[in-house]
């Protein structure tokens, strides 16, 4: 590992840790107003949806693929349907991945 890599990794470690730790460090000296609590309840859904939707609709990152030939879209729809109906995370992931890989294998 070169000196430049060492500096890079130390820098990234410091930046990442400080972002994650800032609020934990303040701890009990920081009181959260109810509006902040409410706001933060929407964070997971907003962030995860923002990651998923472009991945699924533009699998190559540049071209829209709103067709049944899009294995990503098909797999995500199946995952979503199972999650909606049965509320079982592992089953929904397994079902979606099965459809995704089968479809890619059949269609090639």
């Amino acid at each position: 590992m070169s000196g430049r890599e060492l500096v890079l990794i130390i820098g990234m470690t410091a930046v990442t840790f400080l972002v994650r730790y800032a609020f934990f460090a303040l701890g009990d000296r920081l009181a959260f107003p109810p509006l902040a609590h409410r706001t933060l309840r929407y964070v997971p859904v907003a962030v995860l949806t923002a990651i998923i939707v472009p991945m699924v609709l533009l699998p190559d990152g540049t071209h829209w693929q709103l067709t049944w030939h899009n294995a990503w879209l098909l797999g995500a729809l199946v995952t979503g349907l199972i999650a909606w109906r049965f509320n079982h995370l592992l089953a929904s992931i397994t079902g979606g991945m099965l459809v995704f890989f089968l479809y890619r294998w059949i269609v090639g």
């Binding site: 995860l48 949806t49 998923i52 939707v53 995500a76 995952t79 929904s92 992931i93």
Partner: peptide
Amino acid sequence: EFAMAATFTGIVVPFLKSMPMLGAALAAA
């Protein structure tokens, strides 16, 4: 990489049964 999309989809979808959550997801998308 599809495994990641599937995982996140499976987490998000059960939340979408209230109108504000659904709106939040649509706006984010």
